[in-house]
Amino acid sequence: MKNPETESRRWRWFDYRKPIPSHVAVGLGVAGWLIFFCAWIVSDLSGMVSELLVPPPQKVVAALVELIAEQGFLGDIAVSIYRVVVSFAAACALAVPLGIVMGAFKSVESFFNPFVSAWRYLPAPSFIPILLMWFGTGDAPKLALLFIGVVFFLITLVMDHTRGVRLELIETSLTLGGNRWQVLWTVVVPAVLPNVVVAMRQMLAVSWTYLVIAEIVASTNGIGAMMMRAKRFLHTDQIIAGILVIGILGLLFDYLFRVVHRLLFPYIEENAR
């Protein structure tokens, strides 16, 4: 006979989908990063790669400190965050209500979807030249690019999630006397909202991607612009510092969305999140 207690404590490295102890999970995550940094440092010490092209980690950190202390890098970061937040808010303000109405009513979907789907296949950066001609060199063309890059995907995601709201929930409300408007506000919207926040989280990452493209192509400030300046003077340490900051900001925003999700929707089962 197997002893169930010892049985439950045993775990193997490669069991399909079995949970592993949390300290092992954390250790594995840290190990991945450690190996990455070790490889980075070793490649530098061995002299196999040019220090100009691949600066060691300590130089990157030093460059970051110098950027912040002496070159007003925090201002660049603030400008980039501003661009992402403003354009993303505008995209959500359009995409969320439109996506919900498209997902709820076939007639609205039939009207908008052929249009929206087509735009989704046009790569947003291809609009940069025309946006520059329309809006000049200020913030407007960058905001417009980020908006275009996000809005059509977000509409589609929200529409699909709204279509996924179970029909029985809607029909329950109808047989309790709900009219069209009441069903939309008391069933469809609350049922889809948690998924909308997840879709927003996913699209925010895309927004950061377009931000860097916009700033690298045509900008005098922002994180991307700093990286292009650094390229001109062969400051690879500054470029990598820029990449690092974008990564950290992305992680931070993602974490923020997860916290918001948990606070807004405490009634959702943890494993369904």
Partner: peptide
């Protein structure tokens, strides 16, 4: 009343 659960989660 439906066979599938229709309680509103929220």
């Amino acid at each position: 009343v439906f066979q599938s659960y229709t309680s509103f989660d929220w």
